[in-house]
């Protein structure tokens, strides 16, 4: 059984934000407009955090793309009263939109703040809806949504591989964010395969997990920005 994981190379991420828009495009994430955005309702399943270090002129900036960390011990799961947030056999933190009643408890419990609530019925000014991905369900008002590791792409590849009776190749599944990333800072793959690219990166010695001490056992590895070699 595969165990999906991601490696985020903070040394090559340039903070460009292509992944953010790619995620919107792939996953039918609606824009909320300026008024709602100013009220904290913008939905970015993937955000590129930036932090200033130091003061002018000795100042540096750090970028860090943060999406759902697909925690092994996900705090968002046990608190959900309806199993809308639950764990799949492949270690994904799945979100069943139709099952969600909108308690928002999961989002409070998520230490990474990667869960986003639909405060209104998502809408698209016609004909922007023609772009919608038929493989991803639309959400309605009052449900929680979040990064799924582009599970629709995982499933599609699994079905294709099963039809062709062959194993899935490393790198064959690309979430939208990883696919778009110009500098290839995002690497997705099977952590249960020790030879996969993502496994090798996770072992590289630069890897660490975000908020490791909270005990969520996330499946996203952050590869630290290196000093000069």
């Amino acid at each position: 059984m595969a165990k999906w994981g991601m490696a985020v190379d903070l040394d090559t991420c340039t903070g460009c934000g292509a992944c953010v828009t790619a995620c919107h495009a792939e996953n039918n994430i609606s824009t909320v407009g300026p008024e709602q955005a100013s009220r904290g309702r913008a939905k970015h399943w993937l955000r590129v955090e930036r932090y200033w270090v130091g003061e002018f002129p000795d100042v540096q900036l750090k970028f860090r793309p943060v999406m759902c960390q697909q925690c092994d011990a996900a705090p968002c799961e046990p608190v959900c009263p309806t199993y809308a947030s639950h764990h799949t056999d492949e270690g994904l933190n799945a979100q069943v939109y139709n099952r969600c009643i909108g308690t928002r408890y999961c989002a409070n419990a998520c230490p990474y703040n990667t869960r986003f609530f639909d405060f209104f019925n998502p809408s698209w000014d016609k004909p922007l809806q023609l772009q919608l991905n038929p493989d991803v369900s639309l959400r309605e008002v009052g449900v929680m949504e979040k990064c799924t590791f582009c599970v629709q792409r995982i499933k599609a590849t699994q079905v294709q591989a099963a039809v062709e009776t062959r194993p899935i190749k490393d790198g064959e599944i690309q979430p939208a964010c990883a696919q778009s990333c110009p500098s290839k800072a995002l690497v997705f793959g099977d952590l249960s395969d020790p030879e996969s690219h993502v496994s090798r990166l996770a072992r590289s010695g630069r890897g660490s997990k975000l908020l490791e001490d909270v005990g969520t056992f996330p499946n996203v590895n952050y590869l630290n920005r290196q000093a000069e070699v």
Binding site: C16, G17, T21, H24, A25, T31, V32, G33, V48
Partner: peptide, 9 residues
Amino acid sequence: PWLQEMPDP
């Protein structure tokens, strides 16, 4: 709209 709503880096 996607670019308008994308947080500036």
